[in-house]
Amino acid sequence: MNIFRLAGDMTHLLSIIVLLLKIQATKSCAGVSLKTQELYAVVFVTRYLDLFYSFISLYNTVMKIIFLLTAFTIIWYMRKHKVVCQTYDKEQDTFRVLFLIVPCFVLALLVNHEMSVTEVLWTFSIYLEAVAILPQLVLLQRTKNVDNLTGNYIFMLGSYRALYLVNWVYRYFTELGYRQWIVWVSGTVQTCVYLDFFYYYVQAWRNNERMKLPG
């Protein structure tokens, strides 16, 4: 464990807490894409199957359980909570997620470390996470309402993987023979997907104004 990876995990956890607080405090999920939340639930389920058969550390296990529980809590709020589910703009959140899931799964079958069920699913989760934010970014473009908390959520979600990029560079230089091409390439793509959002987020922050996305 190094400081970059710990910072990345804490940023990831914080982003999820911010989203949960937004939904709980405002009793609204306006501007939040349910599809992205469901894709993340799929990412966590397919990535954390090793919870059942391998113990890495208490930290690792606790964080995985927290990520799984919070992901399903958010989905529950957006689907079942009587007040919150009315604020979900279903007709705007129409990204065809199958166009993300199928290619990622096929790619995981073709490019992986080991042709086993858990390894293919783990690889699938790495590829899927790189594109899971797309429905959320598309929704923002459509609804134009980037409320502060949702903007902070997306910013931190993008930042966590950028911190992981630094962690991978650090591990490459400090751990002999450390290689993770699949994760490195996928994590780089994932961070690049956020660059456009980062640009407008930082611009709004510098001009101290509400974030607005171009037409």
Partner: peptide, 10 residues
């Protein structure tokens, strides 16, 4: 190459 038990990251 890293195999499954190497997945020490979240």
């Amino acid at each position: 190459t890293s195999t499954s038990e190497d997945h020490d990251e979240l």
